[in-house]
Design a protein around this nucleic acid. Sequence first.
DNA 1: GTAATTTCTAAACCTAACTTTAGGTCAAGA
DNA 2: TCTTGACCTAAAGTTAGGTTTAGAAATTAC
Lengths: 155, 155
Amino acid sequence: MPAFEGLSIGALARRTGLAVSAIRYYETQGLITPWRNPGGQRRYQKADIRRLSFVMIAQQFGLTLPEIRQVLSGLPGNRTPTPQDWKKISKSLRSHLDQRIDTLTRLRDNLDGCIGCGCLSLPKCALYNPDDRAKSYGSGPRYLMGDAPDAGSVE
Amino acid sequence: MPAFEGLSIGALARRTGLAVSAIRYYETQGLITPWRNPGGQRRYQKADIRRLSFVMIAQQFGLTLPEIRQVLSGLPGNRTPTPQDWKKISKSLRSHLDQRIDTLTRLRDNLDGCIGCGCLSLPKCALYNPDDRAKSYGSGPRYLMGDAPDAGSVE
DNA sequence: GTAATTTCTAAACCTAACTTTAGGTCAAGA
DNA sequence: TCTTGACCTAAAGTTAGGTTTAGAAATTAC
């Protein structure tokens, strides 16, 4: 059996279902690091199939590429990852996912409260300034669904 | 009490916490429709505060602007929406949210299965081709997390 | 030994959801 | 009235996550 010469980028693309251009792009983002053959073409380890599959799964879970890079940095750099290694970082994925589910569930419950109580216009509405507001909206508090405290009713 | 002359875009921005530029952008996307004063400046109804708040909430829930436009089209066009109207379209938001939570929960359970059984490299891994794969990856099935059926083990 | 594929790089292009900029107008207050 | 701040339009810029294009070099297939 001949020495393993590495997968070409096209072969890796076929094995993962990714586009060749996407694989090159992931390289620029530090998600995968091929070596080059004498002609300058990229060559990949078989373990990179699994690595890219992990990237795809993590993306379905809503992680950004920088986040995925962070998670992948939990893999050993000096050897091919074992199933135990993958198990470990999969758990880190899982906690990401748990958080997102919690957030959405909390938002849903808040929305239910608003539907139930008809308070859609009140500053004390449960939707007001939930923890999950990502942005900071400039200075001072903001009142979702309608009214500032001093503003009377919405027409 | 003088007639209500409408809110300026700046006033609306202050009341909702949105940037003026965002409100103008939402107009191009058909999410809000101001009228113009004699000088050509935009003027908004007070009910538009609630409308934009709804947009912001729906965005937190992960809807795109076209989707939000669709949901908002459930509001009456000929009169100011009542609390009942808002309640109705909030329920439509809720079903969006339920779907997303279901999808994520299913993905999480699949991931758990993979962590538990150590099958991360198997084509029969629960992560293989879940219903939630958004894209179609070209021709034929794809094998996530590593191996094609004929491919031997990943190194 | 050719011809057909693949791959290479660099740069431009794409969508979503906005923001920023430039140059000019409108409105409100002292 | 004058001046400042708010507003106007159009166009270009921004970020994420890629794709497309162009022209050249490497590989593979026959």
